[in-house]
């Protein structure tokens, strides 16, 4: 599967030259591309990359492979740091969870990379939030929740450095709710379970993952952040007078090391874009209802700029949360 020259390279450096030299002439890419997943196997980001990688390699020149690789750690920061420091040759690309990665910079936290410097290759998908409560809870509609001015709601998050925290905090600010964040729920499944048990009161979900829990009647949507509510009888953010909530999204974008040449960026970006529009991925999207919302590299940069402006407005809110 992998080019044989790699093995030889380790044993006799000279051999590398002999075998690899002809490949140099053919241009980028001349070896496998690593598609980094900043989380462990089994999650949403993992699923996307493992599905897209084999399709993406079909659209790349020179018949190379796109190899998914999980580099889990520090809420995705470890993979980002590794990509940031990599050789800018375009052989490593990564999927990012977008407001999540921006956050450290906005809040002035020290991390080992500058998120603005990554080269963006495109967006894979965008998910919108839906606010949900447990069906056994006291408050069963968004009006109930907003009326209860004195109540403090419990909201499970992964950590105060996570996207779930940022979205919840901003929503609480906009809707005027007092939210007490409980950190340490390591997966969205555990967040859901805490809601089912009644340990916590409310949580934001992406629309698709909530659908699974609604069928069994344990969780109930009360407010959709989409333009048109996907759930019957559930109001949208605009309908309750807070259209700005529509700007809260989860973006799955793809980036590479700072300083990768425009030419290489274009090769990668085009292959990704073509893959997302490939009938195989589109068919998968229709079958599983997982969102696929391709954006080109340029559009992704613009989108991220806008989202940075949006989140910067809430800088102080987010800071006091700690």
């Amino acid at each position: 599967m992998k080019p044989a020259y790699r093995l030889g390279a380790a044993l006799i450096a000279g051999a590398t030259l002999a075998v690899a030299a002809p490949a140099w002439a053919a241009g980028f890419p001349e070896k496998d591309i690593t598609f980094i997943i900043p989380y462990g196997p089994g999650g949403g980001f993992d699923t996307y990359v493992r599905k897209i990688a084999p399709v993406m390699q079909k659209h790349l020149p020179n018949k190379v492979n796109v190899v998914p690789k999980n580099i889990a750690g520090a809420g995705g920061n470890k993979a980002a740091a590794q990509l940031y420091r990599a050789k800018p040759d375009g052989y490593q690309i990564a999927i990012f969870n977008m407001p999540g990665m921006l956050l450290d910079k906005i809040l002035g936290r020290k991390v080992a990379f500058d998120v603005d410097k990554f080269e963006w290759l495109g967006r894979i998908a965008q998910s919108k939030y839906v606010l949900a409560v447990g069906t056994k809870g006291k408050h069963q509609s968004v009006q109930d929740l907003m009326k209860a001015k004195k109540a403090t709601f419990k909201y499970a998050i992964t950590s105060p450095a996570s996207t779930s925290y940022v979205a919840g905090k901003i929503m609480g600010d906009i809707l005027g709710m007092n939210i007490n964040f409980l950190a340490g729920y390591k997966s969205s499944a555990k967040i859901s379970l805490s809601l089912v048990r009644g340990d916590t009161d409310l949580s934001l979900f992406n629309t698709r993952s909530l659908a699974k829990w609604m069928k069994s009647g344990e969780l109930k949507p009360v407010l959709s952040f989409e333009k048109k509510s996907p759930f019957k009888g559930v109001p949208t953010a605009a309908e309750i007078g807070h259209p700005e909530l529509e700007l809260l999204t989860i973006e799955r974008v793809v980036g590479t090391t700072p300083g990768v040449s425009d030419k290489i960026q274009k090769v990668l970006s085009d292959a990704l874009f073509a893959a997302l529009n490939d009938p195989e991925i589109q068919g998968w999207h229709k079958k599983t209802k997982r969102p696929i919302d391709p954006l080109s590299g340029e559009e992704t940069k613009k989108m991220l700029q806008a989202s940075k402006v949006f989140y910067s407005k809430y800088k102080d809110t987010l800071k006091t949360g700690k």
């Binding site: 599967m1 390279a9 450096a13």
Partner: peptide, 22 residues
């Protein structure tokens, strides 16, 4: 390397030498 397709650590010196040659 062969069965599991791992790329084992190559070593700083070896990588440096390879960079020099290439």
């Amino acid at each position: 390397e062969w069965l599991l397709q791992y790329e084992l650590y190559r070593g700083e010196l070896v990588l440096w030498l390879m960079d020099m040659i290439q």
